[in-house]
Computed example of a mutant assay.
Amino acid sequence: MTSAHIPGLTALTLGTSPLGRDTVPGSAAEDEAVATAIALLRSGDFVDTANMYAGGRSEEVLGIALGELGAEEREEAANRIITKVDRDLETGVLDGDRVRRSYEESLTRLGLDRVRYLHLHDPYLTPFAEASGAGGSIEAMVSLREEGLTDVIGIAAGRVPVVAQYVATGAFDLLLLHNRLTLVDQSATGLMTEAKDRGMTVFNAAPFGGDLLAKGSVAGTSYAYRPVSDELRAWTARAEEVVARHGVPLAAVALQFSLRSELVDSTVVGISSPARLDEARALAAWAIPDAVWGEIEELGAAPTPVHDEREPVL
């Protein structure tokens, strides 16, 4: 994979939002999380985390894992870590000062002096006028790059109308959207196209939409943190019939829908264990007959539960 902003970017980026969740330092559960982190860091793939993931434990566990690697291996792995600055979880503030504090917190947890790739994450609680004004988060992100404290900056969120405002500034090198370019929902197409036209590197996260496209139409699955309607469950069941006729799993088709897109430079997949990493690699490599894509398209547009234009920004 080639990227003007991230040399050697891998087709899969390994997401760590659940890493270390509900673990405490020195526990057996933490040891298990560290073992997973070491497997991710040694995978050769890029690794995606954030200040807020698992209440900061995701970065802390990655930091412990980095400390267990040899010097050369540690440096190489550190160069493949992408993290995100987040709002203060108590106050909701995400201004310029908070951007810098968030970054400093992340570096402390990771045990690093800097990371090369840094996203501004989920700026939903901050009016765009504040984010783009003097002392705002965009100015701070640009300053971090100009000061050499990071190399590449991005905007990472889900709601397309919100993210579009940040892309339009031209300030960012990277775009990460989630749950908006899948078998079920392609509402990111226009914004991703604009980002590519601007020369941005595009990440597509959550290709399974949560668990709907991983587990299928069984009861209890969700899409993009939302309940699945009867209509969407029925559409998914028809998609399952298509892939079953060709002997391929729905999850493989869902993942490769993103991997084969010309709009996507890397697909972010959440990984909770070494076994999950092996499973993701197997799904990515699964041979899918060309006919599958045509038959999925013939099902028509899925009744997506995502309607960003109807949702409040705050």
Score class of each variant (00 low, 15 high):
residue 142 V to Y: 01
residue 150 T to V: 12
residue 129 A to C: 10
residue 133 G to Q: 10
residue 161 P to N: 13
residue 146 E to D: 14
residue 158 G to Y: 13
residue 131 A to K: 07
residue 158 G to R: 15
residue 162 V to N: 08
residue 159 R to H: 11
residue 156 A to G: 15
residue 147 E to I: 06
residue 127 P to E: 09
residue 143 S to M: 15
residue 127 P to F: 11
residue 132 S to H: 11
residue 150 T to F: 06
residue 141 M to W: 01
residue 151 D to V: 11
residue 130 E to K: 13
residue 159 R to S: 12
residue 157 A to K: 05
residue 145 R to Y: 00
residue 128 F to N: 14
residue 145 R to M: 01
residue 162 V to M: 11
residue 148 G to M: 03
residue 155 I to T: 10
residue 148 G to A: 08
residue 163 V to K: 00
residue 142 V to T: 13
residue 146 E to G: 11
residue 158 G to Q: 15
residue 161 P to C: 08
residue 143 S to H: 08
residue 154 G to T: 07
residue 149 L to S: 12
residue 143 S to R: 14
residue 162 V to T: 14
residue 139 E to H: 02
residue 155 I to C: 07
residue 152 V to N: 03
residue 143 S to Q: 13
residue 138 I to H: 01
residue 149 L to I: 10
residue 148 G to F: 04
residue 155 I to H: 04
residue 149 L to A: 14
residue 132 S to Y: 11
residue 158 G to I: 13
residue 148 G to S: 09
residue 139 E to P: 04
residue 135 G to W: 03
residue 129 A to S: 14
residue 144 L to I: 08
residue 161 P to M: 10
residue 128 F to D: 13
residue 131 A to W: 00
residue 146 E to A: 14
residue 141 M to F: 05
residue 128 F to L: 14
residue 155 I to S: 01
residue 145 R to T: 07
residue 145 R to A: 04
residue 154 G to R: 05
residue 153 I to R: 00
residue 160 V to C: 04
residue 153 I to C: 08
residue 135 G to K: 13
residue 141 M to D: 04
residue 151 D to M: 09
residue 152 V to Y: 01
residue 136 G to M: 07
residue 133 G to I: 07
residue 137 S to Y: 05
residue 131 A to E: 10
residue 143 S to E: 15
residue 129 A to I: 11
residue 137 S to D: 06
residue 152 V to Q: 05
